[in-house]
Amino acid sequence: MDDKQNANPTILSLSDLPSRRRESNVKRRDDGATGLFDDLIPQYSYLNDPFEQPLSSSDSDDGSVEDIDEQEVYDLISSISDPEHPLSLGSLAVVNLPDIHIQPPSSPHSSISTVLVEITPTITHCSLATVIGLGVRVRLEQALPPRFRVDVRIKKGTHSTDEAVNKQLGDKERVAAALENGTLMGVLRKMLSTCE
């Protein structure tokens, strides 16, 4: 396991993650601050305990027009596992509540809403950024009603090849083909196994 792209990621503690219950207590990670030894803190496996998961809306895909907000989207994707660490994307601050934007339909004739998620890879050259982005897109396309269009992008300036990754993630045909790739699907399934 020495070949991890980022062997020492910064990790947020569970109490710092945004949730519906403690909204006033949402604390943003201060980039560039300490965090150097954070990975020494042991036993994060409890994050993956199914009983600890915030109740997400896997029961809400009946297509009814009930409002879905950013927190709900966050809950759906923050529990996805990082492909190389036994940690969630939420605790690694790869997905952050302020970087989730929901746009309502642009016209009364339309029922299409848009969810934009900007992800922050743990290091600027992480080649797994595409896989992480794909996991987020797949998770939301499976869990949200089909009236949502899901756009996943790398947060500007956080990744060396963000434009190229964004273009891939935005390409429906490439995403569809990727999901027919057994190896890649295996990785995604593992990442998503900590959801629900």
């Binding site: 934007h101 746009q103 642009s106 016209s107 848009t114 934009l116 269009r149 756009d151």
Partner: peptide, 13 residues
């Protein structure tokens, strides 16, 4: 892909 829809809004209706 859509650009942030806020900029598009003006041109739609």
């Amino acid at each position: 892909m859509a650009s942030p829809p806020s900029t598009d809004d003006a041109s739609t209706p």
